[in-house]
Design a protein around this nucleic acid. Structure first.
Length: 805
DNA sequence: TAAAGAAAGTTTTTT
DNA sequence: ACTTTCTTTA
């Protein structure tokens, strides 16, 4: 053990061995955070002889948990252990606790509760909206879901939310009604959504001293990773669990806080010392990951944030190459450039792993294609994950029904997939009657048999067959499930038969049954096309995944289903893939020798949704910082000058974050003129850059100088293209001329109200904006205008009431 | 009822 | 552009 610790630097060693009492580790990017946690766990077990069972490490993602488990295992290699430390995400920890003790909460939930993931929850919300008669389009289900989740994460229950809504607008009052209905339905269905997992666990630990004691005694040493991203509920959970021993160690970095939108409270890490008065603080500031240049560029961007304590990250690594920049014509050209560069790097160093980081999942598509064309094997994290595929979710829904046919959301999902003659009319009728009678859809089906009313015999027969199908799956499942599901007299018999089935793989058998007996496989085989074949393959994968649960005992099926809800990105990140494509968010905690940050455009990264709030813009900047600091040796930043958004082609400006990088540390790989070469050639901008930095501390908002340099860039391009531009006689002499906003009135040939690209306009609502693009003519002349703070808007000139500005 | 065609919404990030 | 959902038709 001692030699293991010898590989740590003094601060790291201090952090690993300071095991008792509250400890805050402020760990900068690449400072060996995961290493320290792993060593700390190994030290607790190997040197302090703490039982592994008494150690809990909590992470946010399964990826991080997996990584941590492997690291600890490697450190403890060769040692015989009685148990292993629990390394878990917040959500699976809560499931674990609730599956054990939720009945002690006395809210009428049973241990067999179902978990509704985001998709299930959205379906339920849609049902509630329908039921409450919100059939107008004024209130979108997604918006409601966001509002409810937000309320839940702020700790507001229905009553509190409704009370707060009393004095607010109608919209909020409507949402409160949906919230109430949603909660009732969840409860009726014995279901918990993702937020409830935390809420109910906290409520349970708060209300029941016995349970609290039990877990306090079990988890004597607790570690929390990415502590800057914890929200109120997670903080409460940690506080309740560490009430007794206070052996709480948290690791985090304020500069990497990127989940405020999900309710994360940065105050948790900033105020750790006041929450836990005995706390020690250790700073890890030596970076082992990146070159000095990469750190300098990343640091330069993040220093533009005002709400920041600031810290110094240093490295003894080589300076490294400059950050490389490329301006592509469009998204396709951007992807081609990235693929080409990856090939070049791999030619020099065969094992070079690369990551392509983008802001939104929708950007992944072009990169996938480019990788395929370049014959690079790639790996996508996030987006449409395996368990989110339609066919996989359908089969899971059948399995959920096998355990609990009253799960109306699952039933709704598969009652007619594959098509079995239960059409829209029939389903509507059943829903209506279920609502009237206040029972589940499953129970209503039985009622239909007793009194078919308007339903025709064909539909009734189809329902009979469906009922029979689900019952059959249910019987198969109860052979592998707990005793509680079975009538008392049959317990012995059932358990015996469970054992028999057990040795011949019960969970995977059940999955197979759900694929075969439901007619799912047949329906896909009959389609005879590539897509159906791919789906069949996915289902085979699902069976394979289930095999891992075959030896797990009576709760195996339940655990498999839980896993499918909580482990949405299971094993998606394969460490040795040549290329990994993912969002900047997903990349947190990972590192690659070669990193591309793509789509650095205004409105995309930073995202337009973050433009109105300076705090959100700062979060975008931290996200950019996180992305940049993933790079070990080579970092590329790229953007495109036009990009399709919702099918329409839009001109895009360079991201202000590019303007915040030190230009002398950037190498321009663009063929021909780029925004960067322009910005460089303009001494005025360099000068303003210096000025801007001095003023920075007083202004938290958007970097307007970037917009100005970008405006000049567009004007220059217009000149090159020979398009008439207001003030074009001046623009030819590039950025050297005195700063003056072009005006629609000063060109002789231009009428007032004519707005070419590069000119400024004023809009009643959005204020002053830069015209990027014109299309159409006469009545339907449309302008694409970028408004600081609002992003790009496409306006019909005739109706937009624009004035020159 | 199911398939085919039309219209509407989608894309911020995640457990 | 693409996918989901609504509407029409056989």
């Amino acid at each position: 053990m001692t030699d293991l610790l010898a590989s740590l630097n003094p601060e790291q060693r201090e952090a690993a061995t300071n095991t008792d009492g509250p400890l805050l580790i402020l760990a900068g990017a690449g400072s060996g955070k995961t290493r320290v946690i792993a060593h700390r766990i190994a030290y607790l077990i190997g040197d302090k002889h703490v039982a592994p069972w008494n150690i809990l490490a909590v992470t946010f993602t399964n990826k991080a948990a997996q990584e941590m488990r492997e690291r600890v295992q490697r450190l403890l290699r060769g040692q015989e252990l009685q148990s292993s430390p629990l390394v878990s995400t917040f959500h699976s920890l809560c499931v674990r606790i609730l599956r054990q003790d939720i009945e002690k909460l006395n809210e009428n939930y049973t241990r067999t509760f179902t978990i509704y993931d985001q998709d299930d929850s959205l379906r339920l919300i849609k049902n509630c909206l329908k039921e409450l008669g919100f059939d107008d389009k004024s209130i979108g289900p997604r918006a409601v879901q966001g509002a409810i989740s937000g309320a839940k994460n702020r700790g507001e229950d229905v009553e509190e939310y409704a009370a707060a809504g009393q004095y607010a607008d109608d919209r909020r009052a409507s949402i409160a009604r949906v919230y109430r209905a949603y909660e009732e339905r969840l409860h009726q269905n014995n279901a918990l959504d993702f937020d409830d997992l935390l809420i109910k666990t906290v409520a349970l630990l708060k209300s029941n001293a016995e349970v609290r004691d039990k877990y306090n005694n079990r988890f004597r040493y607790i570690l929390v990773d990415e502590y800057q991203d914890t929200n109120m509920l997670q903080f409460e959970l940690i506080q309740l669990l560490t009430e007794k021993q206070q052996n709480i160690c948290v690791v985090g970095d304020e500069d990497q806080s990127i989940y405020k939108w999900r309710g994360a409270d940065i105050g948790n890490i900033l105020n750790f010392e006041s929450h836990f008065p005995e706390a020690k603080t250790i700073r890890l500031e030596q970076n082992y990951r990146s070159t000095q240049v990469i750190l300098d560029v990343a640091g330069s961007v993040v220093t533009h944030n005002v709400a920041r304590k600031g810290k110094s990250l240093w490295t003894s690594n080589p300076r490294g190459d400059r950050v490389r920049y490329y301006q592509a014509l469009d998204a396709e050209a951007e992807a081609r450039f990235v693929a080409m560069k990856i090939l070049e790097h791999r030619e020099k160093e065969a094992e070079m792993r690369a990551a392509v980081l983008y802001r939104t999942n929708s950007q992944s598509r072009v990169f996938e294609e480019a990788m395929r064309r370049a014959a690079l094997s790639y790996n996508i994290v996030g987006g449409f994950s395996f368990y989110e595929r339609m066919e996989v979710r359908d089969i899971i829904a059948y399995l959920k029904l096998a355990l609990n046919p009253n799960d109306s959301i699952a039933l709704q999902r598969v009652i007619n997939s594959p098509p079995r003659g239960i059409g829209k009319h029939t389903i509507d009728e059943i829903e209506r009657r279920a609502n009237d009678a206040g029972v589940s859809l499953w129970q209503t089906i039985q009622l239909v048999f007793e009194d078919p009313q308007s339903l025709n015999p064909r539909a009734v027969t189809a329902l009979k067959r469906f009922q029979h199908l689900i019952r059959g799956l249910g019987e198969l499942a109860s052979a592998t499930s707990t005793e509680t599901e079975v009538p008392k007299g049959e317990i012995t018999k059932t358990r015996d038969s469970a054992r028999v089935v057990h040795s011949s793989s019960p969970v995977s058998d059940l999955v197979k049954a759900a694929i075969l007996e439901t007619g799912y496989e047949l329906a896909l085989k009959e389609e005879r096309n590539d897509e159906a074949d791919a789906r069949l393959e996915n289902l085979q994968e699902l069976v394979n995944a289930a095999v891992d649960y075959d030896e797990l005992g009576p709760e195996a099926l339940r655990e498999f289903i839980d896993h499918s809800a909580l482990v949405s990105d299971a094993d998606q990140y394969k460490r040795d893939a040549q290329v990994t494509l993912m969002t900047a968010h997903s990349a947190k905690g990972l590192e690659f020798p070669l990193v591309f940050i793509v789509g650095l455009e205004d409105g995309l990264f930073p995202h337009s949704r973050s433009a109105k709030d300076p705090a959100e813009l700062e979060e975008e900047r931290r996200l950019c910082y996180v992305a940049m600091t993933r790079a070990e040796r080579y970092l590329y930043v790229t953007h495109a000058t036009k990009r399709r958004v919702y099918g329409a082609e839009l001109a895009s400006e360079p991201s202000q974050f590019l303007n915040e990088m030190p230009l002398e540390l950037i190498e321009d790989l663009t063929l021909g003129k780029s925004w960067l070469s322009f910005a460089r050639g303009s001494s005025r901008i360099e000068y303003e850059h210096g000025e801007y930095r001095k003023e920075k501390k007083t202004y938290a908002g958007k970097t307007y100088n970037s917009v100005d340099s970008i405006a000049d860039f567009f004007k220059q391009r217009a000149v090159q293209l020979g398009q008439p531009t207001p003030g074009s006689r001046n623009a030819a002499s590039s950025g050297q001329r005195p700063r003056q906003a072009p005006s629609g009135n000063d060109g002789v040939r231009l009428q007032s109200g004519d707005f070419p690209p590069g000119s400024y306009v004023r809009h009643a609502k959005y204020g002053r904006g830069l015209v990027l693009r014109r299309e159409g003519a006469g009545e339907s002349l449309k302008l694409t205008v970028s408004f600081p703070g609002y992003g790009q808007k496409k306006l019909v000139q005739k109706f937009a009431n624009l004035e020159p500005a």
